[in-house]
Design a protein around this nucleic acid. Sequence first.
DNA 1: ATCATATATGAACAGTTGTTCATATGAGGA
DNA 2: TCCTCATATGAACAACTGTTCATATATGAT
Lengths: 116, 116
Amino acid sequence: MDICGDKCINEKKVLETLKTIPPVESINQMVDIFKALSDPTRLKIVLALLKQEHCVCDIAVLCNLSDSAISHQLRILRTMKILKNRREGKIIYYSIDDDHVVSLIKMSLDHITHAK
Amino acid sequence: MDICGDKCINEKKVLETLKTIPPVESINQMVDIFKALSDPTRLKIVLALLKQEHCVCDIAVLCNLSDSAISHQLRILRTMKILKNRREGKIIYYSIDDDHVVSLIKMSLDHITHAK
DNA sequence: ATCATATATGAACAGTTGTTCATATGAGGA
DNA sequence: TCCTCATATGAACAACTGTTCATATATGAT
């Protein structure tokens, strides 16, 4: 039957589903992407850079946060290769370096605006 | 010029970008979705339910975690309306209730498998 | 060189998160 | 009714996260 068996597991169903679940490494990679976007500051940074590149201090103004706080978050996003940067004198410009993340963000924006 | 001005901000660029950034509430909604998917246990649960509905104890087996831990995570996903449940006697079956989240997950899976 | 400015970094701290453990609820069977 | 099983819940705790503050680095200007 479909009811959890002996030890409260339906072995057949569990094994069936188990086959379809991606390997741990894949799950962790997905988690890392979602985690990067699951902080309002980081998401706002990426949303801002969707429009155009910006220097650190401009991003700080856009996010209403200290340069330092922004710098920490930029490092996270850069380490994940979601952002890249270029130097122009003293100033460092950040921009988006990952199209996949852009599509994820656009899709999630679509979803919340065209509520189901 | 394009270099950060007086107080290290390029006002024109900042205002330009500011116009394109979604309102705080939208950003928070997006963050909530991404946050829901940014834990390996929760993501694995949703990935499993992509295949078929499962009872709590089966999900616990699939995730190698205690019934209690799973129950806590299921509550989070149910509260967010990502999952729904139905009772059949003593057993409660969980399944997916949010197509948007499904598309986000599928898209992120695509991205990590077809690496850029 | 010296100084000011833009960005980066490390330590510290508060707030949050996920799991465990103990216990509660709620349904079916004896 | 009493017991068992499936699930839910609250408290506690360790681990993690994001910001601040102080300080460091690096570039350009004087």
